[in-house]
Design a protein around this nucleic acid. Structure first.
Length: 684
DNA sequence: CTAGGGTTAG
């Protein structure tokens, strides 16, 4: 089946590569120029020389022209491509981030010719890029069959593949079989050990090496800092003879990932040169650790230094914006992206959709989504999750259908969005339906997050027994989120027995969860079990559990104003409290009676409880918004805790009293208040 | 005209 010698090698034109226009080709700078030479070559017949044809291939794939598809069509025109031309094309695919095509091409090649010691390292590199360990192993088998098993480059590429894919045992096996190991092979193996956390072995190998290059040092520094051993990484880094930019970046990345901003900053300011990756590591690190302000400050600095952000920079910056929900900043970044021609059809589109949804502007999220031409799974998922957060269950289910009609296969996260929407909208039957659809039709193994959503759906709908059954039969240990759902379901449906049960488990897995004590105490209070309420208080006191203070923020003219419950330190405090008084009067006149049932602990007097409600952070933020924002523009608020009952009804009333749209993001979803009602239909 | 090793983001 496989031909061992190219059959046409005997009919090559008698031309030596030297007599051909190689030098001319080398100077080609554009597609047009290349095509002109190509035409001449076809006319004069030199194209039939395999070396010339291959040269054209690598020319079209050259970064200067970078027209890989054209290279492919040229390849398809070669009557009987030699192995070299196949090799060139495979290499080009891998080199241009199209490893999948490279592997497909490799399988096509197998029908025609036997790959050689040039083909294999290329295609294995492609497998490594894609983490395609299965393909890699198959090719490894083939390598042994066709007798390339002892080729140094082939073996070296296999060591690298296995190291990168976490198969360190296999990497070692190939390494041990090698007769002729060089620096590159050693480095690949050390990289593998460092990546999978076998630090001691990596260090041992490093010490055994006869010679090291900067690569060896860098691999070790990066590997150590990636698996959390930043101090060890630092020791190596300090001993390193000629530190390169990559090793600085690896150290900074390691410090940032471990949350040691100080040390990262120190290196950042000390290093001789920085590149975009340095900046990205810093920005992504801050974002990863929830330090959104710092992330955005650095993003600002990049722009001030006239450095062009990369995709990665923008992804991190947009995530930071999502965290703070500073819509105007997000809009600014969006227009920056449009102005500088960043494509929205990849991850950036997903980030934008996410940013707009998390900043409360689901309309803009939808507009971005609609404007993306070739929508990918990530875009569908992002908008579905976004709509779910906004409680727009109808649209979620509609889009989910549309998505499937477009031939997309939802993945686990898409279902998180769908289930989440069902939960926020109280769609218990649909929730059951989609949970089963996911398992049976799409064969997706539910993760703990899926169980979390499903249990939440059941609990909100009051199906507490069914929820309990699901929890008891799920294959993994229930986490905090799941017990919290059950407990709050029990609270909402006044089921003390289930509440007790949930609280016991919750305190067991996560004794510091304040919400647990709050909910439990609410539950007992509602059931008039006052001795139990004081037991809960006592338990909190003994364990030193403190309630997170409520905190709300609002953006005004690009500045984020934060309000903590009851605080009086904002420069405009006087105006704010004036407004609060006005709000109280207006609320009273429309007949609002404060609902103190969820005020927690310690406050004995009804008056005190009412006062505490009035100081809830979102009220301060709303007051600030009413004073300062343009009349008619929506007031957008981000809150760290769940909105309490009283604030919810108050905000509804305020939206009609002041004729304002008020959009509140709490710790799990959005509420759109308009004309006296809320998008959550009082179900949250 | 062809071969193996490193950093960010998702």
């Amino acid at each position: 089946m496989l031909q061992l010698t190219p059959s046409h090698s005997l009919h090559q034109p008698l031309l030596s590569p030297q007599s051909l226009p190689f030098s001319l080709l080398q100077t080609c700078k554009s597609q047009r120029e290349a095509e002109q030479h190509h035409a001449i070559s076809l006319k004069t017949g030199t194209f039939s020389h395999p070396a010339i044809a291959s040269r054209f291939l690598s020319l079209y794939a050259d970064p200067k022209i970078n027209n890989l598809d054209y290279a492919r069509s040229v390849f398809d025109q070669i009557e009987e491509p030699t192995l070299v031309s196949w090799n060139v094309l495979i290499k080009c695919y891998v080199g241009n981030q199209r490893s999948h095509d490279a592997i497909v091409l490799f399988y096509e090649l197998l029908h025609e010719l036997v790959p050689d010691n040039f083909t294999v390292p290329c295609v294995i590199k492609g497998c490594a890029r894609l983490n395609a360990i299965g393909e890699g192993k198959q090719i490894h088998g083939l390598v042994l069959k066709i007798g390339l098993g002892l080729d140094k480059f082939v073996q070296s590429s296999l060591v690298s593949l296995y190291s990168k894919c976490g198969e360190i045992g296999l990497a070692r096996k190939v390494f041990d079989q090698m007769l002729d190991r060089d620096l590159v092979t050693w480095n690949s193996l050390i990289d593998g050990y460092a990546r999978c956390g076998e630090v001691e072995v990596a260090m041992e190998l490093f010490d055994q090496m006869r010679e090291r290059d900067s690569f060896s040092w860098t691999v070790l520094v990066d590997g150590l800092s990636k698996c959390g051993k930043v101090e060890m990484a630092r020791e190596i880094f300090d001993r390193m003879p000629n530190r390169n930019l990559v090793s600085w970046n690896a150290m900074i990345n390691g410090y940032m990932k471990s949350g040691d901003f100080e040390m990262a900053r120190q290196l950042f300011s000390r290093m001789p040169t920085r590149d975009i990756i340095t900046w990205n590591s810093m920005i992504a690190g801050y974002e990863f650790n929830g330090q959104f302000m710092e992330a955005l400050e650095l993003f600002q600095e990049i722009l001030e230094e006239d450095i062009m952000p990369s995709h990665a920079t923008l992804v991190s910056a947009l995530s930071a914006v999502s965290g703070l929900a500073t819509l105007s900043k997000g809009r600014w970044i969006h227009s920056f992206m449009v102005k500088h021609g960043f494509e929205l059809d990849g991850v950036l589109g997903t980030s934008l959709i996410e940013m707009y949804s998390k900043c409360g502007s689901i309309e803009c999220a939808l507009a971005v989504f609609r404007a993306i031409d070739r929508k990918k799974l990530g875009h569908w998922t992002a908008i579905i999750v976004g709509l779910g957060m906004h409680g727009m269950a109808d649209q979620v289910l509609e889009l989910f259908l549309e998505m499937r009609k477009n031939g997309m296969h939802p993945h686990g996260i898409t279902f998180i969005g769908v289930l989440n929407a069902c939960s926020h909208a109280g769609l218990v039957d649909l929730g059951r339906y989609y949970f089963n659809l996911m398992i049976n039709d799409y064969e997706i193994e539910p993760t703990i997050e899926h169980y979390g959503c499903f249990v939440d759906i059941l609990c909100r709908a009051g199906c507490l027994d069914e929820a309990k059954n699901v929890i008891e039969s799920m294959p993994m240990k229930p986490n905090k989120v799941i017990w919290m759902s059950l407990l709050s379901g029990a609270r909402n449906h006044g089921n003390v027995e289930v509440g007790d049960y949930a609280a016991r488990h919750l305190i067991d897995v996560s004794p510091d969860t304040v919400g647990c004590y709050v909910l439990l105490s609410n539950l007992y209070a509602a059931a008039d079990k006052w001795e139990k309420v004081s037991q809960v208080r006592e338990m909190m006191r003994k364990r030193g559990v403190k309630k997170d203070p409520g905190c709300s923020s609002i953006e005004h003219r690009g500045v984020l104003h934060e309000f903590i419950v009851g605080e009086k330190s904002h420069p405009r405090t006087k105006d704010i409290y004036c407004k609060l008084t006005e709000m109280r009067e207006k609320l009273k006149s429309v007949g609002h009676v404060p609902d103190t049932s969820q005020v927690l602990l310690c406050l004995e007097e009804e008056k005190e409880k009412e006062a505490e409600l009035e100081n809830h952070s979102e009220r301060l933020a709303i007051a600030y918004g009413l004073i300062n924002l343009e009349p008619g523009s929506p007031i957008r608020i981000i809150k760290n805790l769940r909105v309490c009952n009283d604030c919810h009804s108050v905000t509804k009333l305020l939206s009609s009293i002041y004729d304002r749209e008020i959009i509140v993001r709490d710790n799990s979803r959005f509420h759109h208040f308009r004309n006296g009602s809320c998008s959550c239909k009082d179900f949250w």
